[in-house]
Amino acid sequence: MTAPALEVRRVSMRFGGLKALSEFELTLRPGELVGLIGPNGAGKTTAFNALTGVYAPTEGEVLVAGARVDGLKPHQICARGVARTFQNIRLFRELTALDNVRVACHAGAASGFFGAWFQTAHHQGEEARILARAEAYLAVMGLSHRRDEVSRSLPYGEQRRLEIARALATGPKVLCLDEPAAGMNASEKLELMQLIRTIRDRFGLAILVIEHDMRLVMGVSERLLVLDHGVTIAAGTPAEVRADPRVIEAYLGDAYLEERHLPAPASPPEGGGPAAGAGAP
């Protein structure tokens, strides 16, 4: 049996006295689509940050295709095959849609600065490959018509899709989507979830999705993990999770209703989004 695409072993994340995530465990096989849910401040984004290297986990191990990656820098983890999107869109705002994706195709670029200055054949071949790849990923996400537009001027839904295109362009084994449907209406959300499934099938990726909309995530993922106060309180198929009394208490109770009226206020354990992790060790 091959190694799972992503294996997270008892990862904990402590910020001073606060344990934002405790003994988080997860195994993702290629082609699996798993949802990560939980109320605000449950530690979902912290979990993402811990496994993409924005934070180094305080305890535990993260393995990608059988190799340890915890403690590496985010760009190194990206090179090992973990790509992500961000809860609050983080596109390269002043760059075109094409260039946003081309940056992500950069990882394998080996020709270096001198190649660029002297326009070596190697460099030019590489540029051509990157261009073709970037255009193909734009096409997959239905963004070819926006190719030369500055990304900040795209409509919201397309910005979200562009972030996914950019993440895909890094050539990942594991794709982590942090609330990809946030701010979309019901039909847009459904469309996006279909698209995510299509991507999974086409590229054989393991996908981990954080999502607030319970119904939506239950409809689309094979397995769910439920976090509350940094603790995994339930895991299993959507049906199992739905029936779990702890989940109902933690998530579907008052907090759930509140959230629907107050979308996404950044809560302390999640560190106000990835920005807080900018100076990661």
């Binding site: 993409t52 760009h75 961000f86 081309r102 660029a116």
Partner: peptide, 30 residues
């Protein structure tokens, strides 16, 4: 030097750092 840099993948990595360092790092830019 600057123009060829700006039109190359190395230059785009620099622009990405200017635009959003966290995202650049997450997209594999050292």
């Amino acid at each position: 030097m600057a123009r060829r840099l700006a039109l190359s993948t190395q230059g785009r990595a620099l622009f990405a750092i200017r635009e959003d360092e966290v995202a650049a790092e997450a997209m594999g830019v050292d």
